[in-house]
């Protein structure tokens, strides 16, 4: 692996979140430069850097079951510009839910992008319950005993330039059992409800946009 030829792309709008933390963990071993996906303006320079890279590693959060819109925009533009020649592509996606299937679409999307644009898909890593880390080290993950060695093996696969199998992250994250599911659901709900109450909001209240339309109707009728 040529360390100077490694490009790491953080697809999160947050520079201190879990996506960036995971990428920094990779970078410590692989070297290379981290590029934060700009949230506005041209993506041309980023595509140019992708064309010149030997290995590309993309890490991003899971929004509505796949990567955020801005990364899709980058992939669309990169596909139009073309000029790829076998660059190795690895993906990392993390989300709040403790299931692989909730987040896995992101990696499938990257794989299809690679296949259609002459890059070489090398596999990826799905991390569940990643949002709770909020940028804290992987050693703070609820399932750290399994996750940490699996993710570090993923990094070794990148260093060796070999395919990283799905089984690596799948075996490290079996779906939670019934009791854990119930406890986790109550715990997460407790956290979000408490947060809303802190700001004086009622979680049971109709959505803001519904309330606003009702208010506008009442005001309009007077």
């Amino acid at each position: 692996m040529n360390k100077s030829n490694i490009m790491l792309i953080c697809a999160s709008p947050r520079h201190k979140g879990t996506s960036a933390m995971l990428l920094e963990r990779v970078q410590v071993v692989t070297g290379g430069k981290i590029f934060f996906l700009p949230q506005r303006g041209s993506l041309d320079e980023l595509v140019l850097a992708m064309q010149k890279a030997g290995t590309i590693i993309i890490s991003g959060p899971c929004y509505i079951n796949t990567y955020p819109a801005r990364l899709i925009e980058l992939l669309e533009l990169a596909s139009i510009k073309g000029n790829f020649s076998g660059q190795k592509l690895y993906g990392i996606i993390n989300g709040g839910m403790p299931y692989i299937h909730t987040h896995q679409h992101g990696l499938i999307c990257l794989k299809l992008f690679a296949e259609q644009n002459h890059l070489s898909w090398q596999g990826g890593f799905v991390l569940g319950i990643g949002a709770m880390l909020d940028g804290k080290p992987l050693e703070k993950h609820m399932n750290r005993k399994r996750i940490v060695p699996a993710f570090d093996k993923f990094i070794r696969n990148i260093v060796e330039g070999v395919q990283s199998p799905n089984s690596l992250y799948e075996e490290a994250q079996p779906p939670p059992g019934k009791l854990t599911t119930r406890i986790f659901t109550k715990f997460l709900t407790f956290l979000v409800v408490n947060n809303l109450k802190k700001y004086g909001h009622d979680p049971e209240a109709p959505n803001y946009y519904l309330r606003k339309q009702e208010e506008d109707k009442i005001n309009g009728s007077h």
Partner: peptide, 8 residues
Amino acid sequence: VVFGSVSH
């Protein structure tokens, strides 16, 4: 359909 996803 863009890489099995929706467009940006």
